[in-house]
Computed example of a mutant assay.
Amino acid sequence: MSPAASTDKKQSAGARILGSASAGICEIAVFHPVDTISKRLMSNHTRISSAAQLNSVIFRDHAQQALGKRLFTLFPGLGYAAVYKILQRVYKYGGQPFANEFLTKNFKDNYETLFGPKTGKALLSATAGSLIGIGEVVLLPLDVLKIKRQTNPESFRGRGFLKILADEGFGLYRGWGWTAARNAPGSFALFGGNSFAKEYIFGLSDYSSATWTQNFVTSIFGASASLIVSAPLDVIKTRIQNKNFDNPESGVTILKNMFKNEGITSFFKGLTPKLLTTGPKLVFSFALAQSLIPAFDKLLTK
């Protein structure tokens, strides 16, 4: 056994579920309007050159209404968003430790031989995150419905959730390949950036022993790296998902049109507001989950 072997404390499955679900609930309560703004900016195909245009892109048909009424329109798809976000956070934040434990048990020596004990441990965490990110496509239909409600509510045409499931079937998994391609490097960077910061900035041997402040700081590194790495594929994914159900468009077609009509900078549309909006959201939920999981574990094991 290597002297630098992982000493991370293993939390119970119950603690991981409760901690991740609580983080998801808090995240959706605070950041859903911000997420709606980000998605609408990414879905916009025109250049925004004035405050009036920005107002129209964000609030759409309600742009001329009073501020209070406009703000209320930033909560479309809240039901889909809540279910999706809680399941996503439980799967991602609660599932990554299990994947990390599996990889550590079976491949730790390989990683330490290739990259050294500290870097190898951080890369194991990043690889586990990447694998979990790929599997996240299982939740894609809920993400699709959330984004359509936020950016293209006309596509529902008065249909309810069950009716849409019956009508669209596996069409709700449209863009799954692009989603997996975006999630793999994005989750790798999220968990990897977080782990590298814990390893090299704070020198933690047990990542679960991090304080709230340490979790917050390391989450900033992970979230920023994740958003930058995944930005181009995230724009394509969003544009695939916000099309009408009866007028789908492939990711390749969207990619070609973006190059032709909008230029290479279009692949980073919404990145700045995303770093300023989605970044804090991801930092908030990731840091909260990492702090709550050990706290729940202490409560459950008393």
Score class of each variant (00 low, 15 high):
Gly133Cys: 08
Phe216Pro: 01
Ile240His: 05
Gly186Met: 14
Ile201Phe: 12
Val217Leu: 11
Gly160Met: 03
Leu123Ala: 05
Gly135Val: 11
Leu190Gln: 13
Pro153His: 13
Lys163Met: 09
Ala231His: 05
Phe170Val: 15
Gln150Arg: 00
Lys118Trp: 06
Asn110Arg: 12
Thr179Cys: 12
Asp206Val: 09
Gly129Asp: 01
Phe191Gln: 15
Ser130Cys: 12
Gly177Trp: 15
Gln214Met: 05
Phe107Asn: 03
Glu199Ser: 15
Gly160Thr: 01
Asn100Asp: 02
Ile147Ser: 09
Leu103His: 01
Arg149Val: 00
Asp143Ala: 13
Thr104Leu: 03
Ile240Trp: 03
Lys163Ala: 15
Ala197Trp: 12
Val235Pro: 02
Ala197His: 12
Ser205Glu: 14
Lys108Phe: 05
Val144Asp: 10
Gly171Pro: 05
Gly160Asn: 12
Ser155Asn: 02
Ile147Arg: 13
Gln150Ala: 15
Arg239Asn: 08
Ala231Asn: 04
Ser208Ile: 03
Lys108Gly: 05
Ser195Ile: 06
Asn194Pro: 06
Thr179Tyr: 14
Phe202Asp: 06
Pro153Glu: 06
Asn183Ala: 12
Asn152Asp: 08
Thr211Gly: 14
Ser219Glu: 06
Ser195Phe: 10
Ala122Glu: 09
Arg157Leu: 08
Gly160Asp: 09
Leu172Gln: 07
Thr119Glu: 10
Ala197Val: 15
Glu112Trp: 00
Thr211Arg: 07
Phe196Gln: 09
Pro117Val: 03
Ala225Pro: 02
Ser195Leu: 10
Asn100Leu: 02
Asp109Gly: 02
Phe221Trp: 07
Asn152Arg: 05
Ala225Lys: 00
Asn194Cys: 09
Ile201Ala: 13
Pro141Gly: 10
Gly192Met: 12
Val138Arg: 09
